[in-house]
Design a protein around this nucleic acid. Structure first.
Lengths: 262, 262
DNA sequence: AGGTTGATTTAATCATACAATATTACGCCA
DNA sequence: TGGCGTAATATTGTATGATTAAATCAACCT
């Protein structure tokens, strides 16, 4: 597994026109992740970070290859991936330019990860809660209507796992996230799914914090209310219960965020 | 944009060597669209159509290249794009397999387009309205809170365009779509944006139908109410107005859908 | 039976050549 | 001089072949 053949892709004495500004790409680590994927990470991160402004052309392919010490194949495949995520757009002679952020697939896991790495957590969490507040009550209502027995069974299991978690904070958070994701799945509306996946990223830490102390007991009751309404197939009740749950979760986190450093 | 235009659909004459199983890919038309993009279209369509079940491996690279008559470069880049959209996943020796639909980026414009081509309109529109009903009222409320003067100006302009459309149905529909998209933009929450883009695809036709006749007058009033509430920065009012608007739009379309063939 | 090794298949990466295509710059004619 | 077509040119797109790395399966050995 350990390959001694370290070919670090050294940006060898380029010589000619040594550019004054250090390139915005970090050295590519030797993970077991594929090369084009690592390249895409570097590029995506640089773009999301704002190293290249919208409508600005990236350096030409060959130059990028040189900067990162990879072949054109790897670079092209990385670029192709970013195009698919809506970050860039490439045409012959015109170059590959950054698209306006409105076109980015902000719900894509990679894009999300890059943004989390460069954006301040505060505003990002607020935005996550905004969309969650919009979708989750409706998703709960739909889960009550459209959810199959299997969906409902999974919800029950997730809820049980939350209870069983006991003092284990990690287990609690995982079960919590699963519970909410299961709600989105139970809508049987694929447009809800990507939003359900969203919270696994930035929210783990916050959930873990919010899960401590006395909130735990109330959280169980409120999750139970949502579950009960869904199982009883009462959409309006489910929507209401979900709203209550979210309201309290938000204020919990607000309170924690403004309290002395954890 | 890079919208694919080719609508070949031609079940081409199987031609030379008659293979036992007909390949699920249509002949690639020579549009001005790039080759890898057309290949991605074929593959994506075939996957979304269900020609390859989840967890099932596609034919190996070389075989796929042969089937579509393209080089490995083109094929690889197409595959890379589909991986980026979450449709497939490829590893050496394991092959490239279709991922479970829960992982697909259903809000991606291409994925959406493929689904629209193979899914029946009925259920698809219902799902669109479900998520729209979840997000748009909240988006309107946020637009009232977070929207800048520029955002509000754009909203006003879009509304004016709806009025100016007069008898021009296309102009009305375009303005209508722009109006709603502007609401999502005004949230200043990038997670809402992809949902706002969604409706430009399947809904144009429906909007055009629903825009006819007496509905037009009422629609203007209701859009005006939403606009007014947003400009006045009254989130609760905006949310309520948006809900009314959506409720009527839904029932309009319901009514139309169940009426004799348009 | 269980784990280890090795062979095999498949994707991943590199390198190179050539084609297509926007942009830019030039030169032509009115 | 000014507008317009046209050639030069830079940059991405496509094709091909060779080599490397990785996952699977089967045989093998304990």
């Amino acid at each position: 597994m350990e390959q001694a053949v370290s070919r670090p892709g050294e940006p060898q004495a380029s010589g000619s026109k040594t550019i004054s500004k250090p390139n915005p790409f970090a050295r590519l680590g030797k993970a077991n992740v594929k090369l084009h994927s690592r390249v895409a990470d570097q590029l995506g991160l640089a773009i999301v970070r704002g190293d290249f402004k919208p409508d600005q052309a990236l350096p030409p392919e060959l130059q990028l290859c040189e900067m990162l010490g990879v072949s054109r194949t790897a670079m092209r495949e990385a670029v192709r991936g970013l195009v698919a995520k809506g970050l860039i757009d490439s045409k012959p002679k015109r170059g590959t330019r950054v698209r306006h952020p409105t076109h980015w697939n902000h719900l894509d896991p990679d894009v999300l990860r890059w943004r989390v790495e460069v954006t301040d957590t505060e505003t990002y969490l607020r935005k996550m809660f905004q969309i969650r507040r919009a979708t989750e009550p409706e998703a709960s209502a739909l889960a009550a209507i459209e959810g199959t027995e299997e969906d409902h069974g999974r919800l029950k299991a997730d809820f049980q796992a939350m209870i069983d978690a006991g003092a284990d904070n990690d287990a609690w958070v995982e079960a919590d996230l699963r519970f909410h994701r299961s709600i989105y799945l139970a809508t049987h509306n694929e447009f809800f799914w990507p939003i359900g996946q969203l919270f696994g990223f930035g929210l783990r830490q916050m959930f873990a914090i919010a899960a401590q102390g006395s909130h735990r007991a109330r959280a169980i009751v409120e999750h139970g209310d949502v579950l009960e309404a869904i199982l009883a197939r009462k959409p309006d009740l489910a929507r209401a219960a979900s709203l209550t749950l979210l309201g309290n979760a938000t204020s919990d986190i607000d309170r924690i965020r403004h309290s002395p450093t954890p």
